[in-house]
Design a protein around this nucleic acid. Structure first.
Length: 481
DNA sequence: GCGATCAGAT
DNA sequence: CACATCTGATCGC
């Protein structure tokens, strides 16, 4: 964790003498404190899920609290930050048990798997019983989605109105990040890239007046804070979000991203400039190794060519979720000079990217294309067998690619040619390590280059062991600062 | 009927 | 494994 060498703030070694209200002298929640058991448990759990030691934030001049002050104090005057709960807009009054249970049980997966919640008036089914829950409040927004000293949140749409939040940032258009954005949205402006804004307008029924597109690489002043979106190298439209506060503090929220060498050229990401880094830690474990995207694409293209040579009537299939992985099939399309077929709903979305390179390859006739894009979930042998049946007039075999980040670790990680497909009859499926999240070594290089004062992991923070491991990595990477 | 949400599956 | 849905059931309007 940042510059801190172990210390009392570590979740694994709580202070020996907890103060009565479950907070330490600095207003930190105390993990596993007997006195905090009932009242502050959910807060403490939530807090320590971030796996972060906050002492340097306290030591430094602090941003103004956003909840009590309604985020209107933009002067940059250093208020003394007595309670991080206040600074983060977290209400530390005790909650009813059902809420505590909801938070404790659901908040585990971090930014990319936000906790689910119950809303006022909803009923929840438990063990066959229907439990009335008329007065249950929406789940609280986890603190790691709030940007301290600002009235901002990132990817926090499923918590209703977040106290103190006047501007809601959306890092990219994946469901686990935009979840909660519906036509009922009325809690404030939504800032995102122009591409993400188009997708939100097309696919969700959010009142367009709330949608505020921002250009990449352009500085905007929002609520007195300078904000710049940067290409995140994740899915189309995904952004890193850079905040520069009135007091000079600089925060980077990576959303979901794949760190790359070219990010080291961004003027805003020069060494030592970032005070606080919210990091996509999806693959922050040395077991996750995978090659550069280019190598994987090259492998897929070579493999496709080889199969087509052997059997010219081969249908190439690439699996994909909603958005992301486009370059896998676009590269095949270009290399083989074949159009891309996919269903109408995906065509609509792909065209909305505004990428002419991609748009001009898309076709709407499955018979006239030997390259099809299908939902990842349908890439199974029985499914593809059936699919082939429907196209048997033109195709005799299927070669499918399943792009994913986690399939390949350790052994096969850097040895693409060791990848063995799964074959049954005329169906061949290759899992390929095409990841849109950073590998462990890419994360390490990014963090070591950036040298932030503090790192907040946003994924895999629900488990103490994994949290501690990530902390140890950050400490190692940033030691000697 | 339709949209939203949840648990569970993949 | 963990990603990012997807499915099917339920709930509310």
């Amino acid at each position: 964790m940042g510059t801190d060498i172990a210390g009392d703030g570590e979740p694994s070694s709580p202070p020996p003498l907890p103060v009565p209200d479950g907070l330490d002298d600095n207003g930190f929640p105390l993990p596993s404190s007997p006195t905090a058991a009932t009242a502050a448990t959910s807060f403490a759990d939530d807090f320590y899920r971030s796996g972060t030691d906050w002492s340097s934030l306290l030591a430094a001049p602090s941003p103004p609290p956003s909840s009590e002050e309604s985020g209107k104090n933009k002067s940059g005057d250093s208020l003394v930050q007595r309670s991080l709960f206040q600074a983060w807009g977290i209400d530390r009054r005790p909650r009813r048990e059902e809420e505590v249970a909801g938070v404790a049980g659901g908040a585990g997966a971090g930014a990319s798997s936000a906790p689910s919640g119950s809303w006022p008036g909803r009923k929840r089914r438990r063990g066959g019983e229907v439990e009335a829950a008329a007065d249950r409040k929406p789940l609280a927004c986890p603190f790691y989605k709030k940007i301290p000293g600002t009235p901002f949140t990132v990817d926090a749409f499923r918590y209703g109105a977040v106290e103190g939040c006047n501007a809601y940032f959306l890092s990219h258009f994946h469901h686990d990040h935009y979840g909660g954005l519906t036509k009922k949205w009325c809690h404030g402006p939504i800032y995102c890239t122009a591409l993400t804004a188009r997708l939100v307008k097309m696919c969700l029924s959010v009142n367009p007046e709330y949608i505020c597109p921002l250009e990449l690489d352009k500085e905007y002043v929002i609520e007195g804070v300078s904000v710049t979106l940067l290409e995140a190298n994740h899915c189309p439209g995904a952004a890193l979000i850079h905040f520069r506060l009135g007091d000079g503090k600089k925060y980077l929220h990576t959303g979901d991203f794949r760190a790359s060498k070219s990010m080291q050229l961004y003027p805003l990401l020069q060494r030592g400039q970032i005070n606080l880094l919210y990091l996509d830690t999806t693959y922050c474990n040395p077991k996750y190794k995978f090659p550069p995207k280019e190598d994987v694409i090259d492998f897929a293209v070579r493999t496709a060519k080889r199969y087509l040579q052997k059997e010219p009537k081969t249908l190439i299939v690439v699996g994909a979720y909603s958005i992301g992985k486009e370059n896998v099939y676009l590269a095949i399309s270009k290399a083989l000079q074949v159009p891309i077929y996919t269903d109408a709903s995906r065509r609509r979305i792909l065209h909305a990217f505004g990428w002419s390179d991609l748009s001009k390859m898309i076709c709407s006739d499955s018979q006239s294309s030997s390259l099809h894009v299908l939902p990842l979930s349908s890439l199974r042998h029985e499914n593809l067998q059936k699919y082939l049946e429907t196209l048997k007039q033109r195709f005799l075999a299927v070669l499918a690619f399943r792009p994913t980040g986690w399939t390949f670790s350790e052994e096969t990680g850097n040895q693409l040619d060791l990848i063995k497909p799964s074959s049954r009859g005329k169906i061949t499926i290759y899992g390929v390590p095409y990841s849109e999240h950073s590998s462990f070594s890419e994360l390490r290089e990014f963090v070591m280059f950036l040298r932030p004062q503090k790192v907040i992991p946003t994924v895999n923070v629900g488990n103490a062991a994994s949290r501690d491991k990530m902390q140890a990595h950050f400490r190692e990477w940033l030691k000697g600062l």
